[in-house]
């Protein structure tokens, strides 16, 4: 059964052009689904729509977002917020700005549990310590009392991961969680996220621009171009033989250090023209039907 089901979701800039064009995807409980595309393709927008944190300049024009059997978009705002808060969480991109510099780490993890989910302070603290240990932070007691600036980028990303898993959400949206990190740290963090996800059986929506990363953590992926899903397939099939010319071109553009002849091929103009034509045709179809 799919834990998250997005049906024909359309989002646009208010009084502007579309940003998502009837996007559909499904994430089963315990699965990792990659959202891939170049900047501006709308991959983060999907995650934001699911979590109900779209910027105010943007509006949903149609579609459904089924989370745990309920269509979020049919709910009143307060109820939608409550449901999302109880079942989903976010691992943000930039560990430097995602933690409030003027609060200690401990409360930043526990406050949500206490204030919104009604846990007791003691339970929340115990839970936070458990999770910090699980994300392999040495000396969790001390870290709970630290301020963000006292910790490295990798440490902060671990804390954000711990914080995302704190309330045992059934869905986590990870928005480019390792883009700001060194490759060596990225590897540790990716392994950590994958391990946590498997242990907790969480469904994970993983936004990234890096197909290398997708091949390491995801089971399925959607390739986006201009807010349109051009391919939705399993990771194994995709890397064996991408079906859409644009996905194939993206794969050929991804660097591959083991083979200097392969990778880093520019996306051919013909492929861009083709996928653009598809988008235009799609918009025309949408306008008439």
């Amino acid at each position: 059964m799919s834990f998250l089901r997005v049906n024909n979701l359309s989002v646009r800039l208010k009084k502007g052009p579309p940003l998502l064009r009837r996007v559909s995807l499904q994430v089963a409980a315990g699965d990792v689904h990659g959202l891939v595309g170049e900047s501006g393709a709308g991959k983060s927008m999907i995650g934001k729509a699911v979590l109900g944190i779209l910027p105010p300049s943007v509006e949903v024009t149609g579609g459904e977002i089924w989370l745990d059997g309920v269509d979020l978009l049919s709910l009143p705002l307060a109820e939608r917020r409550r449901r999302i808060g109880a079942t989903a969480a976010l691992i943000p991109q930039d560990p430097l700005t995602a933690l409030n510099p003027s609060h200690r780490i401990g409360p930043q993890i526990t406050d949500r549990l206490v204030d919104i989910l009604g846990w007791s302070r003691a339970d929340a603290n115990r839970r936070a310590l458990e999770l910090l240990a699980e994300v392999q932070i040495p000396d969790p007691d001390r870290v709970m009392r630290s301020y963000p600036h006292e910790l490295s980028g990798g440490m902060r990303q671990r804390i954000l991961i711990a914080s995302a898993f704190a309330a045992e959400p059934k869905l986590i949206v990870a928005d480019e969680p390792t883009t700001a990190l060194d490759v060596t740290v990225q590897k540790q963090i990716l392994k950590l996220i994958a391990g946590m996800q498997a242990r907790h059986g969480t469904a994970l929506l993983f936004v990234t621009h890096d197909l290398g990363v997708v091949s390491k953590v995801c089971q399925r992926l959607s390739v986006l171009y201009a807010g349109m899903v051009v391919e939705d397939t399993s990771v194994a099939d995709f890397f064996a033989a991408p079906r859409h010319a644009y996905s194939a071109a993206l794969l050929a553009a991804t660097p591959k250090y083991t083979d200097p002849a392969a990778g880093l091929q520019p996306v051919p103009d013909a492929v861009i023209a083709q996928v653009r034509a598809e988008v235009v045709a799609f918009d025309r179809g949408a306008a008439h039907g």
Partner: peptide, 14 residues
């Protein structure tokens, strides 16, 4: 550094 680079290849063991 080399080991940490994610190759676009699900077969690469990590």
């Amino acid at each position: 550094l080399l080991d940490a680079i994610p190759l676009p290849d699900p077969a690469q063991a990590w």
